[in-house]
Structure formats: structure tokens, C-alpha cells
């Protein structure tokens, strides 16, 4: 990638930023079956993802955000991609897939694009909870970060949601990195990311 802003002017990104798809419009009367919210305004970005579902297939979606340009562009792209997918397939979409469809995002923008993906999963979790399957996809799409102790990115996310804010807090909850320590760098990056997205303070 070139300079910090050149990504914005790829035709794909520009189109999604200029004309974001599936943005919620109150006049439309869109009635979601499930929805999920993530991020918080204090950190400068928040995302709400709404789903219309039939037999676990995503029929239509709407979203809203208080977020930056890459959050807008990537969520717009995500909202197009998930239509027609089963909730399981949608749950397994990786932020990287979306970034790639946008022609790549600079490193400092990846975290903004993760927001849409997290909100989508929160919405699917909401649907699962409403249909008596709470937590059913807990390990869907999870990626093992610590191979010694079998700790996944989802486990790190859960630990942060339960209050872990630093490496010690994360270790106290997951034991991550206490064997060979080889996972520390990647785990810390994820920890930082998730604290930004999920921590209230």
C-alpha cells in the first residue's frame, strides 16, 4: 500500500465509501430478526448490524455506524457479501476476505474494518440466542493462536469481554503463552485490538 490515504481512492473502496450499500434507513420499515452492536463511541467507532433471516439463511441486512471511512467501506462490502449466506458461512467470513475484496487496506485501517465483522457475529449470536442455541458457533472460524495450550482468537475475545485488559489479565484467564511463549506477539496484538473494540473504558 502507498500512503495512508491512497487506499481510499481505489475505485472499489471509493464506491463503497461514496455510496454505501444496505445502510439502515428508518423510512424503509426494515424489521430485523436479529441484531448486534459492537464498539463504542468513546473509541471513535461503533457498529450496528441487523439481519433478516429465513431458516438460518441471511435474506437481507442493514447496518449503521459511527465510524471512519474504512469502517463504512468495509461494512458496505460485508453487507453485500453476506446476503444469501447461511449464518454459519457468514460467521466464518474473515476480515481479511473483506479487506482483500476492497483491494487491501493499510495496516492502521484493518482494525476499523474488523468492526463490521464483529457486529455481524454479534447479530448472528443474537439470532442463535433467540432460537435457543446460545453460543452454538463459539468455535466457528476460531483460529488457534497458542498451539501449546489450544487458545483461540475467540478465547482471547471472550477473555477481554470478561474484563482482561492486559497481558497478565489475559494469562490469568486463558493461561496463554505460559509454555513456549511463541504466541505472545500475535496474542498481544489481538488483545490490543479487542480491548479497543470491546472495552468500555
Amino acid at each position: 500500500m502507498g500512503d495512508a490515504f491512497s487506499w481510499l481512492y481505489s475505485d472499489v473502496v471509493k464506491d463503497h465509501f461514496m455510496n454505501p450499500k444496505n445502510v439502515f434507513n428508518p423510512d424503509e420499515g426494515f424489521e430485523p430478526d436479529a441484531q448486534g452492536m459492537t464498539g463504542n463511541v468513546k473509541c471513535g467507532d461503533q457498529m450496528l448490524f441487523m439481519l433478516k433471516l429465513k431458516d438460518d439463511v441471511i435474506e437481507d441486512v442493514r447496518w449503521k455506524t459511527y465510524g471512519c471511512a474504512s469502517a463504512i467501506a468495509s461494512t458496505s462490502m460485508l453487507s453485500e457479501v453476506v446476503k444469501g449466506l447461511t449464518i454459519k458461512d457468514a460467521y466464518n467470513i474473515k476480515p481479511d476476505d473483506i479487506a482483500q475484496r476492497l483491494g487491501g487496506l493499510p495496516d492502521n485501517k484493518i482494525h476499523c474494518s474488523v468492526l463490521g465483522d464483529k457486529a455481524l457475529r454479534a447479530a448472528i449470536d443474537d439470532h442463535l440466542a433467540k432460537t435457543g442455541r446460545e453460543g452454538a458457533f463459539r468455535n466457528e472460524g476460531a483460529r488457534i493462536i497458542c498451539t501449546c495450550l489450544n487458545v483461540s482468537d475467540r478465547d482471547i475475545e471472550d477473555a477481554v469481554k470478561q474484563g482482561a485488559r492486559d497481558w497478565e489479565g489475559l494469562q490469568a484467564r486463558t493461561k496463554i503463552g505460559t509454555v513456549c511463549g511463541g504466541c505472545k506477539k500475535e496474542a498481544e496484538e489481538l488483545l490490543h485490538e479487542y480491548v479497543h473494540i470491546f472495552a468500555e473504558e
Binding site: F5, K14, C43, G44, Y66, G67, C68, A69
Partner: peptide
């Protein structure tokens, strides 16, 4: 209120208007 600074800045930029913002997203920090 209700609008994020980097998004405002970039929509302005597309309209040819060059400003700056106090938003975290634009600064690259959090």
C-alpha cells in the same frame, strides 16, 4: 456530534476541501 471526523474529512476531501480532524482514526493512534 454523531459524525466521525475522519469520515467527514474524507468526504470533504472528495469534494476538494482540505481540512484536518481531531479524530483518533485519522491520527493512526487510538
Amino acid at each position: 456530534p454523531g459524525a466521525e471526523g475522519e469520515a467527514i474529512l474524507l468526504y470533504l476531501d472528495l469534494a476538494g476541501i482540505e481540512v484536518s480532524t481531531g479524530s483518533a482514526c485519522a491520527s493512526g493512534s487510538l
